[in-house]
Nucleic acid binder design. Structure first.
Lengths: 139, 139
DNA sequence: GATGAAGTGGCATATAGTGAGATATAAGTG
DNA sequence: CACTTATATCTCACTATATGCCACTTCATC
């Protein structure tokens, strides 16, 4: 299970370091995909396979199902963690998540998320404001 | 399984490079055919046979089934990947998908899709708008 | 304060992508 | 029927980009 929040930077070749705490659980090969709320999801290979199987069911069905599976499958990118512990993020994914140089790497249960630092700040601020109310609605 | 998104260009002879990540799974001979949403589908020979069998079942059924199987079966074109990793796309397929020079090659589960770059951009933008809501309805 | 690990930057090499040239095949015309 | 022309396919070569590796610096821990 991934927990914690780290600030890392992209180098000139769109590579970013994986926090050392995540490396063992992520394994050598990871999948980077478009996530929800304008961030990127990073999965270990095994977790991705489960996700992909769900999406594949809809790849030729309704127009909406096709659209979503296209977006998530075509948006997925296989990346190997290099000897220095970095992964490569393709341009189209970087621009999808409006990633510049400074990024936040966050552990969220079975996946790792990549956020633009500014987007992360504003997002967490809004959530913090609503958290109390949301907790009550859950209870 | 094909995943990822690549930007490639058609040369003056209607050939386009297959992304190196797709080559192994696509094999030497591929089938290019009309796809849904104004793009082209590219199948490895083995996957095409299964697809064609499914279509054949519907070729005498409902009007919609007949239409779809006509579209995909009559539009199918066999193409060999040449020594430089390119495939040849016939004119009628290029114009069906409004393909100009810049194209997007997208991996979607068991097939590869060819999109005009502009069409791809507008398509993904529309889907992204609906994606969050749709993802929630799936869960 | 020193030692070690983790993160970042840069460099070098390999390979993918694209453009162009040459040859072979097919078709049309004389 | 033969020759010429045009079209298509295959191969080669060059360039740009990506990926793997190495070294340095900074931060944390002992």
């Amino acid at each position: 299970m991934f927990i914690g929040e780290y600030r890392h930077t992209f180098d000139a070749k769109n590579r970013i370091s994986v926090p050392s705490k995540f490396r063992k659980e992520l394994g050598k090969t990871v999948i980077v995909t478009r996530g929800l709320d304008r961030c990127l999801f990073v999965y270990p290979l095994s977790a991705w396979k489960k996700e992909a199987a769900k999406l594949a069911e809809h790849s030729t069905g309704s127009a909406a199902g096709r659209g979503l599976s296209r977006l998530m499958l075509s948006g997925a990118s296989e990346a190997d963690v290099d000897s220095a512990g970095r992964i490569l993020v393709p341009d189209y994914l970087k621009s999808f998540a409006t990633l510049a140089t400074k990024a936040v790497v966050a552990g969220v249960n079975e996946r790792v998320e990549l956020w633009d630092e500014d987007a992360w700040t504003t997002y967490t601020e809004t959530i913090e404001r609503d958290a109390d109310a949301f907790a009550e609605s859950l209870a």
